[in-house]
Design a protein around this nucleic acid. Sequence first.
DNA 1: AATTATTTTTAGACTAGTCTAAAATTTTTA
DNA 2: TAAAAATTTTAGACTAGTCTAAAAATAATT
Lengths: 219, 219
Amino acid sequence: MYSFTEENYLKAIYKLSEREPESITTNAIAEVLETKAASVTDMIKKLSDKKLLKYEKYRGVTLTEKGRLIAVETVRKHRLWETFLHEKLEFGWDEVHDIAEQLEHINSEALTNKLDDFLGNPSHDPHGDPIPTRSGEIKRSNLFLLCDAKPKQKVVMSGVVDHSAPFLQHLNKIAIALGSQIELLDKNEYDGSVEVKLFPSTHLHLSKEVAKNILVKTR
Amino acid sequence: MYSFTEENYLKAIYKLSEREPESITTNAIAEVLETKAASVTDMIKKLSDKKLLKYEKYRGVTLTEKGRLIAVETVRKHRLWETFLHEKLEFGWDEVHDIAEQLEHINSEALTNKLDDFLGNPSHDPHGDPIPTRSGEIKRSNLFLLCDAKPKQKVVMSGVVDHSAPFLQHLNKIAIALGSQIELLDKNEYDGSVEVKLFPSTHLHLSKEVAKNILVKTR
DNA sequence: AATTATTTTTAGACTAGTCTAAAATTTTTA
DNA sequence: TAAAAATTTTAGACTAGTCTAAAAATAATT
């Protein structure tokens, strides 16, 4: 129905609108898709003609409901495939993204739904991101950054901001994974780094760079 | 590395060369790919430039070893995915082809090999076709057509010639599946139809059209 | 408010893949 | 074996998506 390229544009615009509802600029889209602004303008016109987004020259874009649904469906497939790769094929959480970028474009509603069932209708993918439902609903997360936790606060590792392989591999090395029980011992005001206790008994010093890319929830 | 289109051309040429080692004509390729002869000529030139096949104007093509390996790898992925869809996601054997046509182009050696292991390194797909090995070897089949069996001969259903959904659904209806034990009772010389006994006790009359699309082996 | 800087869009060109229509070649047939 | 038929190739055009370079619009700065 829609090309890989169209789906990638819609997904990129959707993800940008998640964090910065305003300012979905041509340049921002070009940057995440690693393409040029001129190409983005061309594609935006095409998607606008197809009523997948609203476009005003020089003023940016917003997805229509139709466009949002396609984007969310693509995200759904991406996260289901990541879950499959991790849970069933034993890929590390740092290895699943690139393969899922290909698999997310496979076009078969029956396949997506059977895969969902096969995986036991998971609510989250291997990075802790919520998996949209069949009807396109997606849970609004109540997570916060580890660097924003209060001293003495006990939290559970529940997601990442940075999804890059190097960051995930770093977490592997220091043995922080989804579900890890963390207690914030101390915050260093000077450089933003934090001291944490990792259940049951590990002491860790985390740089601000690391702490601000870890999502947690209270327990 | 290679585009979907290139892989589809190589696969089509490979399959044609399996059954009719000669006569891999431009028109034959165009027919299986549902495209026009002019398009085939264009693509053949491109694949020839890339040393994936040998091409002499007006004389047809033959795959090089490099081209053959890409084709076989694509077939391998197709059949592994079909097996996954059937064994794990519970798709019928008549439903797996179209989805596997998409999945066969996913480009990740790690994925293919992990999928292979996850499935228990199957030797055949849901239609009885052999799955090529990692190194591109494929078992030469010793199957023959049910319509060529001798009266009184006891055989095992082991594959199909026609892979279309309607034919597979017809086999579903008459309860013939891979592994079915069949005894040829009688051959009708006039119309080529056959009388068979389907283990344990079903009597069936099969038209020649059906019998010549069922592959069997002796038991 | 005018100039400068930045962003966005347009214009025109390129590649991959496809098509139709016409030309070239091969095969068939009488 | 020459004419007719069929097949294959070429020529030129089209779409999707991309790019560079230049023009247009907006935003920032003095």
